[in-house]
Write a protein that binds this DNA or RNA. Structure first.
Lengths: 201, 201
DNA sequence: TAGTTTTATGGAACGCGTATCAATTAATCA
DNA sequence: TGATTAATTGATACGCGTTCCATAAAACTA
């Protein structure tokens, strides 16, 4: 921890400031021009730095795209919350939330790709530091809904995560394998929820 | 149906022959060098034509990648069948198959990306003619397993497709959101199957 | 055979993500 | 001030998917 000569490393706040700046420009690009507009070259031009500089602050495009997760997940969460209005019965609430969840992704396939298909599959051993706080927060909502089904049960997390992953799968399949005659989203999510409400044998 | 002047369209068999040739070279590239080796430039070099020529025969890379689906799905199916040996009880069989299914994708994330993440999400209005025969065949196996749980029930397709989509979601989440503390694959698939075996309320 | 019409091809180009590397700028210490 | 060290930059390069366009090739009609 001794001071050395020469230019000191980046200031902590400067780092955050730069990351925030990049995040804002990336967000603006994504919202205004869509997924494909968020390129390293265009983004660096918007930020006002060289494309190479971005690689000094982020380990790659994937890490930058993750900055956009929070926005999308917030919007999705709000959409789900909206669907819960005037619903009181726990099962009905979960069902409505699930439908809204899957529906959101199907209505916004670009957002789905952003969150769930941006990672470099196959190179996952490399990308080490991923913030999952956003994801965790968005899934909390479902944990509450599941808990309210039967507050006495202790396996809330397993059932929640299973149904969330299941819903994501339903969205993925409906979006990408669009020529296979999938049942309606409503039917499939209903089936997933049947597993949640069932009593363990 | 009158004959017109000028060079006639490609011969039907020639078309199939060329597609087969491309398919074989793509397969060899994928098996030998991996996903990233299957590029339009390398593939065209292997085939012996210009990169542009490929676009005269396929509408894009996605359509070429789909030629590889059958191989992967066959291997996956075989792996699942393997897991069924010496399993007789219907629920146990379904559970074993589900575990093998998800496990296969997690063990081969490149294959997962190939089949489930190759489509151009967002441009799905364009890519019209996708062969889903491969997929359909691979899912048939699960339809049988689900039917055997309770041959009297008529909602086999809904329950099968829901659990298949759910398993794909489990695989997707485990692969791409690898820093979120998902429950074990075994627990999540078990949860999905609970919905299959449950009796409708 | 000459001309016409349609298909098939390949070269060039665009923008992309990413890596390398030398040169420059900035901030600190001696 | 000068030396030292880190951050930033620009140029260059590779391979990628894809599109455009001019040209070659093939099969017909006259």
């Amino acid at each position: 921890m001794t001071k050395t000569a020469g230019r000191p490393p980046r200031n902590e706040t400067d780092i955050l400031e730069f990351r925030k700046k990049v995040s804002q420009h990336a967000m603006a690009l994504y919202r205004d021009k869509g997924f494909e507009a968020v390129s390293m070259r265009r983004l660096s031009k918007a930020v006002g730095c060289a494309p190479t500089t971005l690689y000094a602050h982020f380990q790659g495009k994937t890490e930058i795209l993750m900055l956009l997760w929070a926005d999308v997940l917030d919007e999705m969460t709000q959409h789900v919350q909206e669907s819960l209005k005037r619903k009181t019965e726990p099962t009905e609430r979960l069902k409505a939330a699930a439908l809204a969840f899957v529906g959101y992704w199907i209505d916004h396939p670009d957002h789905f790709r952003l969150v769930f298909m941006s990672n470099d599959v196959g190179r996952s051993d490399v990308d080490s530091f991923i913030e999952t706080g956003d994801v965790q927060g968005s899934f909390q909502m479902f944990a509450d809904l599941v808990r309210n089904l039967n507050p006495k049960r202790s396996d809330v997390k397993v059932r929640t995560d299973a149904v969330v992953a299941g819903m994501i799968g339903v969205a993925l399949c409906s979006i990408t394998i669009c020529n296979y005659p999938w049942p309606t989203v409503s039917k499939m999510t209903g089936q997933l929820i049947a597993g949640i409400t069932a009593t363990p044998q």
